[in-house]
Write a protein that binds this DNA or RNA. Sequence first.
DNA 1: GATTGCATTGAAACGCATTTCATACATTAT
DNA 2: ATAATGTATGAAATGCGTTTCAATGCAATC
Lengths: 324, 324
Amino acid sequence: MANIREIAKIAGVSVATVSRVLNGYPYVKEEKRNAVWEAVEKLNYTKNINAVHLAKGKTSIIGVVLPYVNHPYFSTIVEGISIEALRYGYHLLLFQTNYEEKKEIEALEMLKMKQVDGMIICSRTLGWKFIEAYKEYGPIVLCEDVKGRDLLSVYINHYEAFMLGMEYLIEKGHRKIGYCIGRTTGTNSKDREAAYRDALRKINESPRQEWIFDHCLYIEDGKRVVNELLAMREKPTALLVSSDQVAAGIVLWGQSAGWRIPEDLAILSFDNHPISEALQITTMDLPLSIMGKKAFRMIYHSFQNNETVKAEKLEVRLIERSSV
Amino acid sequence: MANIREIAKIAGVSVATVSRVLNGYPYVKEEKRNAVWEAVEKLNYTKNINAVHLAKGKTSIIGVVLPYVNHPYFSTIVEGISIEALRYGYHLLLFQTNYEEKKEIEALEMLKMKQVDGMIICSRTLGWKFIEAYKEYGPIVLCEDVKGRDLLSVYINHYEAFMLGMEYLIEKGHRKIGYCIGRTTGTNSKDREAAYRDALRKINESPRQEWIFDHCLYIEDGKRVVNELLAMREKPTALLVSSDQVAAGIVLWGQSAGWRIPEDLAILSFDNHPISEALQITTMDLPLSIMGKKAFRMIYHSFQNNETVKAEKLEVRLIERSSV
DNA sequence: GATTGCATTGAAACGCATTTCATACATTAT
DNA sequence: ATAATGTATGAAATGCGTTTCAATGCAATC
């Protein structure tokens, strides 16, 4: 493939002039400009973008770290990031980590190696310290409350959101409440657990381990939850479910086990994914796509080195339907 | 940031030796090797990966072109690609196109510019010719039947799959059959339409335009379909639905309109997404994750320039449940 | 007529790792 | 003892676009 020097030779100008033409800079005579474009045409030339990246010291690529692409929670965030990235001429490099620390570190290393200009971490398992060690190489935004640490953050206050949910259930008369969560580690999960415990404490109920269902991510996990519930002597009367997907699974498999929702089991879930509307599940609307967009913008602003807001909290709201 | 020359200076060796150490090549004395690693440690050095990309002429990045990340059909393919890419040390650059030609071209240009070593096109709107023009810059695999064209392809024969579905519906006694599809253009869609028409012809029914529902992608599109059906004087008795998501929407909103499935409306859909199991929807299992994996492997093989199979057809199978 | 300033343009340096080629020494085979 | 291998190492070329700096040409200002 041709390079800029060949173009220069054919067009009878210097490489600097070719570069000027290619990048639309002024101060090039019309005729030379034309000569360059003609040579470009003739040789079917395209820039080698890796040389550009090297020379400029940046790539216009943002890394996106997430455990699974295939979960609506994450793919909605990515969608948001993607829309905004396109608007500003950025591309997205995907790092699917499966929550393995090694993969997360590899992703961060890509920031240090200048593979990406910035990083959005949708969810992580790696400790703070580790991540902070990389922020000198480029902006990193996390989709969680960083609790005052010096990292960028766009987040939903899951303590508040879960508390809101708990209060709603309690207000509806529930006292025996369980919950389903994707994992028990991670800021978001810890916050939710704290809200759960605090809410129960307020009504003098103590948390019951068997009513806490871990590893609930996908619709089919709802099936497992239903089966476990069926095997229990004492069931909760309500469940807070961290994902509409799982909630849908619980509702559907619960119904096929003969349960009426909410009479036999009330469900309050999170995300406000269209599936919750289809099933009339009461859910907490989480602005995931917006979270993605804001995460991108935060990175983008930090490139313009405007004084950026370090952390931005997004509001949730309860969508009352008929599963509670 | 330090570079390889500084490391060489500090370690008292040449840059070539540093490169050897960094890349684990033999023929370096133990002591020099150690000296290099020490210098690396001391300067907190990391390779500038853009220089590596430039020097090697490749990036170990594969481009993934798709219209929407946020649809289970595509995110499942991406998941498959991602798993396999990770295994072989490749990364994924996402190109969300929204089916805009301009964006698809931009993606292909990235192949020419050597931003990516190869490209997987999950779905496209751009013509063949255009894509073929880029295959000289790297392997391109499409997730559709390329019908003998000289492009790599991993595909599901949607004519057969749709025909299978039609025959199943017909066998169950249906003659008034409609279908829902994501878009009407595109190889896969055209193939499905052909199967639909051919199947109807066999039973001497003529296709009815109002029973063909376009733009059906997400669960909420099912709502629209139900509403349109409710407004019809003569409804079909069965619907072939190209996505489980839409099928789920139809089943759920249909039920809330008082329909019994399959008595009032039979539904046969595609994907075998877990939602179809939860709703007991009869569906055609499409090996989407496998398609992603195979697409990646095809690219990978073409790098090893083994003689590669140019096209691979994947089998589908009907999962009988109770929506027909 | 001299000075200031903008428009044009190219040489060369820069960003940085990889890889080839030549060289030097140490072994092993003949 | 000599040829043939293998080990070890560095200089220099290579991949390629961007950017700085100096220089030249030409028009406007004083």
